[in-house]
Design a protein around this nucleic acid. Structure first.
Lengths: 135, 135
DNA sequence: GTAAACTCTAGTAAAAAGATAGGATAATAA
DNA sequence: TTATTATCCTATCTTTTTACTAGAGTTTAC
């Protein structure tokens, strides 16, 4: 299941990307338009900013804005920041690899074999979609 | 993340499929070989039996066994039984469809658009892999 | 009839998800 | 300078899900 965090994060990014100008937009405005709890959205936008997707300005007239061109933002990174690893098991993860402690051998593991394919297919989708593509 | 339930279920199915004969195998034997809590595995095998993947025999010499030829068992169904919907959001689910109450229009929803592609790519993997394929 | 093995219901502990509170900080405008 | 606005940040809380456990019941082989 996609977490609400990811869902809301994607909706917020989309909302910002759909605007013509890149002037700051208040959290409250995004929350209102996308039916998101404002406080929850606050924390999501914060992590998107810390990961280089958004810029922010405090005070009157402040808010969040996109830093990059939506066409230059592949979903791969966005999904990793919001949802975590793209792989469904750590032993097939590119960025968060870990061995399974309960599994003696990856080479013969059926779960490994299947999940490797699932990861690759998901990865291809995320790589082929930029923020601009899903608007 | 793939749940342990699914992981263990797949391992158990694999274990049974790798055997030459189809005589009953005790839960304890599977649990031991695959490093799974026996009681937990019990409940997993039960749901696999209720969904038509396994047969069972009680009493001495009893156990679980595969009902069908591994080549005739696509991962699609197994994953749905163990893990639930393949789609990451209900609004793109084939078998468990639900509208999002917070989303006014699916046609313009960026999350919908992206997750539809992810579902299709995952579905293709599961359709192209039978139990026999991942052994 | 007894031991072996699955069946079934219930329950529990830990972790994650989802959301909220409230003050700190910084920018703006008067 | 002061009041206002809006993000920043930490902490906490509730709910749901996950992973696992307990124990009594039922069926079968011998």
């Amino acid at each position: 299941m996609l977490s609400k965090k990811t869902k809301y994060g994607l909706k917020a990014l989309t909302y910002l990307a759909r605007r013509k100008d890149r002037s700051p937009v208040q959290i409250a405005e995004i929350a209102r338009h996308e039916n998101i709890s404002q406080k929850f959205l606050e924390s999501i936008l914060l992590t998107l900013r810390k990961n280089g997707y958004l810029g922010s300005r405090k005070g009157k007239g402040g808010g969040y804005y996109l830093i990059k061109d939506p066409a230059e933002i592949p979903m791969t990174g966005v999904m990793r920041v919001l949802e975590g690893p793209i792989a469904m098991v750590p032993c097939v993860s590119l960025n968060f690899y870990e061995t399974c402690d309960d599994c003696p051998d990856e080479a013969t593991c059926s779960v490994h074999k299947l999940m490797l394919q699932v990861r690759d297919s998901a990865l291809e989708v995320y790589r082929n979609n930029s923020l601009a593509d899903i608007i």
